[in-house]
Amino acid sequence: MQSTMNLKIKYRESFRPFAPAVLAEKVSDWFDMDGESPYMLLVASVRDDKRVMMTREQEQLFGIDKLNVPRSQLPAITHVDYSARIQTVHQATNPRFHHLLGEFDRLTGCPVLINTSFNVRGEPIVGAPEDAYRCFMRTEMDYLVLENVLLEKSDQPPWPETGDWRNEFELD
């Protein structure tokens, strides 16, 4: 999932792991952390009981080859050293995202979603609805939510594009 999302949606380097957004109440069930990290400025380890141990052959792999070995039950957000850059999601400051994570947890038993910024490489994160729709149509994103509005990619009229938009943004 990490390599797929990096290349399909973000058009960015595949070595960078994604960050997990986790229900603040359940962070210590999955990570070695019991405080808050609302701004993704803290890294903590995935808990031992959620890790997948490597085989002896896998231990021998170096550098980027280690990337493709799943390291935990949350492979896309677990770095090769079992660390993760955590965002705790709080009812008080982001109630709708908290609601979504709660529903996801109820359905799957997992209160964690992969979270990455809404942009492509080199583009500032979307600000207004038109930025979001443009980015949605240009990438291989499947669905788009704008407040209470839900859009499905396959329903949309063709998006007229002139030239290769990937040249529009200087790489960061």
């Binding site: 999932m1 999302m5 399909k8 949606i9 960050a19 957004a21 609302p38 701004y39 993704m40 400025l41 965002q87 999601v89 982001n94 709708r96 995202f97 979504l100 979270n115 990455t116 910024s117 809404f118 994160i125 979307v126 600000g127 609805p129 979001a132 980015c135 949605f136 291989e140 994103m141 499947d142 669905y143 788009l144 939510v145 704008l146 407040e147």
Partner: peptide
């Protein structure tokens, strides 16, 4: 079902470590 969903809601984030779940 492993769909990729664009998520745009609430007040935009401010700052350098953004993507905190309102433009995700």
């Amino acid at each position: 079902q492993e769909n990729v969903v664009g998520w745009f809601q609430g007040r935009m984030e401010s700052g350098r470590a953004p993507w905190v779940g309102v433009r995700s």
